[in-house]
């Protein structure tokens, strides 16, 4: 369980392995903010290996998206399975994020 950060075509891709919940959300936040401070502006969070997300995990994504936009950047989400999409739809956060079906789709045009 953890977060894998890689660079792909000038985009910082963060893969969430396991879960994104109250107990590890700060780790994700710290990793993304470090990249933002280093000048990175384009981000994709990839949920291909993610089991579940709680409200704290959703909240940290909202917070990061706002901070990235304030710096002129963009955060996209990719590979949400049916359960995870349900969470975004229930909370209407699907209206706030650009959600791609795959990492490659998320990277297109970013």
């Amino acid at each position: 369980m953890g977060f894998q950060v890689i660079k792909e075509n000038g985009v910082t891709v963060v893969a969430v392995e396991g879960q994104l919940i109250v107990g590890n959300r700060q780790e994700l936040k710290q990793k993304v903010l470090e990249e933002l401070e280093n000048g990175e502006r384009k981000f994709v969070v990839d949920f291909d290996q993610t089991g579940y997300i709680d409200s704290s995990g959703l909240g940290v994504l909202v917070s990061l998206s706002k901070k990235i936009r304030e710096q002129g950047g963009e955060l996209r989400l990719a590979n949400l399975n049916e359960d995870l999409r349900t969470l975004f739809e229930l909370t209407k956060l699907d209206t706030l994020f650009k959600i791609a079906d795959s990492r490659s789709e998320a990277l297109q045009g970013l």
Binding site: S55, S56, V60, T91, K92
Partner: peptide, 18 residues
């Protein structure tokens, strides 16, 4: 309600709703 336009952009307040 965390799904109103004013609240959906907030970072918290979704736990009980979920």
């Amino acid at each position: 309600d965390p799904t109103t336009p004013a609240n959906v952009v907030k970072t918290g307040g979704r736990g009980i709703f979920l």
